[in-house]
Structures are given as C-alpha cells and as structure tokens.
Design a protein around this nucleic acid. Structure first.
Length: 312
DNA sequence: CCTTCAATAT
DNA sequence: TATATTGAAG
C-alpha cells in the first residue's frame, strides 16, 4: 500500500522543474502574511496595499502550519482611528483576523486541487483534507470549500449533459477553468474501487513541513520585491490542455457517469491524515508560493495569486 | 467541530 | 465575473 507511494514520488521528483525553470517571478513572491509579519512593504506600492475593516472572530484553528492559514498580521495599522485600542489583544500577533485577498484559481492551482481530490478518494475529499494535501501556503479551508462547491456543480452539469437536453446548460465562461484540468475517471464512476489501480498523477506530497525558516529566508531575499500580475491569464499555453469538449465527452456520453464524491455521501469520516515523510526532500520551494497582487486595475481589489511549479 | 448546499454579498 | 461569506441542515 505504501509501495506505490515511493514509486510515484520518485517519478514526481524526476519531473520537477529545476530551480531555474521555476517561475521567474519567484523572486518577488512573498506571502501577504509574511510581508505583514515582517513589516515588509511592497514596492510599487509605497502606501499600504489596502485596508478595510471587517471583523471575524472565529478561532483560527491551531493548525500546525502557522504560516499556512494563520492570518498572522493585521490590517489594523493603516491609519485608522482605532489605534491600538484593543482590537489586537496582547499586541503580539496582530492579526488573527486578517482580511485576505481574493484567491485566484489559476489553472495550475486548480490542477493541484483536482489531483488532491483524486488522491484522497471520495471519502476523504473534503475541504480540510484537500487543503492539507494541497499544501499551498496561504490556502484556507474556505477557499477550498468554495471551490469544491463550484467544482461539484460543474461535474454535475457534465453529467446532466447527454440526456436530453439540449444543450444548454453550461456556462462557458465558468467552465473554462475547470476544463483546464482533466477530470479523473474516478470522479466519473463510482464502481471500480481502486483496489489495484490508483490514479496517480504527479503529485506533491510535501508537507506539513514547517518551513518557517525557509520562508524567512525567502522573505529576506525578496524583501523588497513585489510583483503585480493582473488577472490576465487568458490565453496561454493552457489552451492546448482542452478536454471538456462535448465531442470529446462523447465517450462517456452513454448516459450518466458516476460522480464519485458528487453523489451523496452517507457519512464520511475525517482524519487519517495521509502524511508522507518527505523521503529525500530538499527542494527549497517544492511548494507553491504566493504572489500578492494589489489590483489597482480592478476596482481596488487585492487578489492573491497562488501559483505552482509549472507542471501540466 | 466539520461538511454541504443555496442564497447572497463584494 | 469569480470568489467569499453566511446560514441552515445533517
């Protein structure tokens, strides 16, 4: 059961892009949390990126990944009138209540999501677990939950097609993202439990690994860099990755395929975290990095873009 | 506490 | 528009 793990991990490792092949922008990648935590100011943006007010008290789960989903830092600063009034209790970790920028689901990020779901299996493909497996810095459970909800609707729609109808039902615009990643067959049929054959995409187990130090290093290195990347990943090479054409779907179009986790789950148990022990992990940045974008061009909305090591 | 879903907000 | 947030239900 664990044998294939090392197997695919090895393959995954081989396919890893060399550090130089990684996103050129990585130099300017610095997480908002980190930026705030280190009091780093993003170039091109002398002033603060944004600051709004909203309060959420929820209790940030004591996730073992402080930098991960912890909303460290705060949005308080800025000028606000309430200077040190009490919002931040002890004042040490200003912000467990950070207003995060909207996440942009790039095709790569979505792929990661799909891979994670495929690996987890129907039972465990729930937001929290998916989030953990993806191990994307800055990604929250809610990001995943929201995306998952939409993804399921997408799959459902895919099913619905073929019977009748006519057609119409898809929202082309919305589907583009989802179409950018192939839908694993398991999502489509329920039977066939992967007793011997598992879907094994190149995946990154990475982990749980606390890379505070690494992050610190990255932060220091990138200390004064920031990159602005407008939401314009329209045409790119991703166009070639098309898959969800009605025509192509014909092969499944015998009626309805099963939607694995799409269907009702009577109950699901959570836990049983599948953690790899990071065999020979030494990649500095096997993880995704975040790119903070101050969207000036977008009605003043800040957007968080997570992107991976190009592997698709 | 967590997930799922529909409705709603930004 | 895409994603976030909320609230009810399980």
């Amino acid at each position: 059961m664990r044998e294939d793990e090392t197997d695919w991990f090895t393959r995954w490792e081989e396919e890893l892009p060399s550090p130089e092949d990684l996103i050129p922008l990585s130099q300017s990648l610095i997480s908002p949390d980190l930026a705030l935590a280190f009091d780093i100011r993003l170039p091109g943006n002398s002033g603060q990126p944004h600051h709004h007010h909203h309060h959420r008290q929820s209790t940030p789960p004591p996730q073992q990944l402080p930098s991960s989903q912890a909303n460290s830092s705060a949005e308080f600063a800025t000028d606000s009138a309430d200077l040190g009034s009490g919002a931040t209790a002890a004042g040490d970790e200003p912000a467990r209540t950070l207003k995060r920028p909207r996440l942009v689901w790039t095709p790569q990020l979505h792929k990661r999501f799909v891979d994670a779901v495929a690996h987890l299996g129907i039972k465990n493909a729930v937001p929290k677990t998916i989030m953990q497996l993806m191990s994307v810095d800055g990604l929250t459970r809610e990001n995943v939950a929201s995306h998952l909800q939409k993804y399921r609707l997408y799959l459902k729609r895919m099913q619905g097609l073929s019977s009748g109808g006519g057609g119409g039902g898809s929202d082309p615009a919305t589907d583009r993202l989802f179409a950018s990643s192939p839908v694993p067959a398991h999502f489509l049929h329920p039977n066939r439990v992967p007793s011997s054959d598992h879907y094994m995409p190149s995946f990154v187990p990475i982990a749980t690994l606390q890379q505070q130090q690494q992050m610190a290093a990255v932060a220091a290195a990138a200390a004064a860099n920031a990159h602005l990347q407008p939401p314009q990943f329209h045409h790119r090479q991703i166009a070639a990755a098309h898959f969800g054409s009605p025509t192509t779907n014909g092969q499944f179009g015998n009626g309805k395929f099963d939607q694995s986790f799409l269907a009702r789950q009577t109950q699901q148990q959570q836990q049983t975290l599948q953690r790899m022990s990071t065999p020979s992990l030494h990649s500095p940045v096997g993880n995704y990095v975040e790119d903070l974008e101050s969207a000036n061009a977008n009605g003043g909305r800040t957007v968080l873009t997570l992107f991976p090591t190009r592997d698709d």
